[in-house]
């Protein structure tokens, strides 16, 4: 799908990047490594048997 958006605040965006667009403006690039890390955390936080020990 094609829609025109402004990259005026995201000069470093390159073809193939995933971006967050708001009101016709790209405001952030999605970081794939961080995305995968978040997905991994979903697994972890879902599967933890007991909460971490609170700091002393």
């Amino acid at each position: 799908m094609l829609k025109e958006v402004s990259l005026g605040c995201l000069p470093e965006a390159a073809v193939g990047d995933y971006v967050i667009v708001h009101a016709g403006m790209a405001i952030s690039r999605l970081d794939e490594a961080e995305a995968l890390e978040t997905l991994r955390m979903f697994e972890e936080i879902g599967g933890l048997a007991s909460p971490e020990t609170p700091p002393a």
Partner: peptide, 22 residues
């Protein structure tokens, strides 16, 4: 539950600490 009061970033795939400087 742990009595902490920190700023944590769950949305790290889109949010950087410094935000969008431009």
């Amino acid at each position: 539950e742990q009595g902490r009061s920190e700023v944590e970033n769950q949305y790290a795939r889109a949010v950087r600490r410094e935000g969008n400087p431009a």
